[in-house]
């Protein structure tokens, strides 16, 4: 009882401290979130009539929305696991090189820090029809490829994504690997465990939370592939790289906010379900490993 006034004072102070960020969160996240839902349920006309799920039905029957959605899912299924696997392998190798691998460790983060637009220009030159890659291909006796047009554009897009995001994933894996106690590996070696067995029985279980984090972060990043596609292919790139972001961007430019919000919330639901499944699967896998 004696502590009640103090607890009340502490609670009040707590709420006062929380108030500014809460207001910010409310104004810049919560309100726009619900406003977006409202937009997606109206027809955007002068009368702004409530149309229920009509907008959603329309976009789910729209070929371009479905094309964008399919391409986004495909690209993310290629890019995220690719980054995950490469980052893990590189992190394991770098972990063995410490401390002499410090320069390499720092360098691998550079692409992540560089401004994307500037790097895109370099990549455009590299993949140009007369660029470095095609010259190498030509030297090897093969036909040049128009990397920057048509379906072939997928290759530079994936490569660019991997190049840019690999470093951050490596750092995450590296920090997790460095936290694994070395004696565990010593005991395993003494017991005659192979490298692969060590990886499966020691490394993966201990770094699984980080591994989960990396796949989630990379998958979310892969969902947002757009800048590279737009910079190279414009608002209407080849159908093989036309993403959901292209669709939403074009709808936004045409001031069709109903379609933008309907597409965005549809995708959000898909991602929500997917990640729910992913978390369930990863959780089960972790328990098995443990």
């Amino acid at each position: 009882m004696r502590n009640k006034p103090r607890r009340m004072r502490r609670n009040r102070s707590l709420w006062l401290f929380l108030l500014p960020p809460s207001v910010g969160l409310l104004i810049f996240y919560v309100v726009p979130f619900f406003a977006g839902i409202y937009y997606s349920l109206t027809d955007g006309s002068y009368t702004n009539a409530f149309v229920g799920l009509k907008n959603y039905a329309e976009i789910w029957h729209n070929e371009m929305f479905l094309l964008g959605l399919r391409n986004t899912m495909e690209l993310s299924l290629i890019c995220a696991p690719l980054v995950w696997v490469l980052a893990f392998v590189i992190a394991v190798l770098l972990n063995r090189l410490r401390p002499s691998g410090a320069l390499l460790r720092n360098s691998i983060l550079l692409p992540y820090l560089m401004p994307a637009s500037a790097m895109l220009l370099v990549w455009l030159l590299f993949f140009d029809y007369g660029g470095t890659l095609n010259r190498i291909i030509h030297l090897l006796g093969m036909e040049r490829v128009a990397w920057l047009s048509g379906a072939a554009l997928r290759f530079p897009v994936v490569l660019l994504f991997v190049w840019k995001n690999l470093g951050f994933a490596v750092i995450l894996f590296l920090s997790a690997l460095q936290a694994v106690p070395e004696p565990l590996y010593e005991y395993a070696r003494l017991e005659g465990a192979s490298l692969a067995r060590q990886a499966v029985s020691i490394t993966l279980p201990l770094i699984s939370p980080t591994a989960m984090l990396v796949i989630i972060v990379e998958w979310i990043s892969a969902f947002k592939i757009f800048r590279e596609v737009y910079f190279i292919g414009g608002a209407y790139p080849d159908e093989a790289v036309y993403t959901l972001q292209n669709y939403m961007n074009n709808m936004y430019n045409r001031l069709n906010y109903q379609n933008v919000t309907s597409a965005a919330y549809s995708f959000a639901m898909i991602v929500f379900v997917l990640f729910g499944i992913l978390f369930a699967m990863l959780g089960r896998a972790q328990r098995k490993l443990n």
Binding site: E58, N62, E63, M64, A235, Y236, E239, Y242, Y247, N250, M251, R254, N256, N259
Partner: peptide, 12 residues
Amino acid sequence: DRRVRMRAMEGN
């Protein structure tokens, strides 16, 4: 044609 067709398919 490709661009215009895609634009038309996106709808209004």
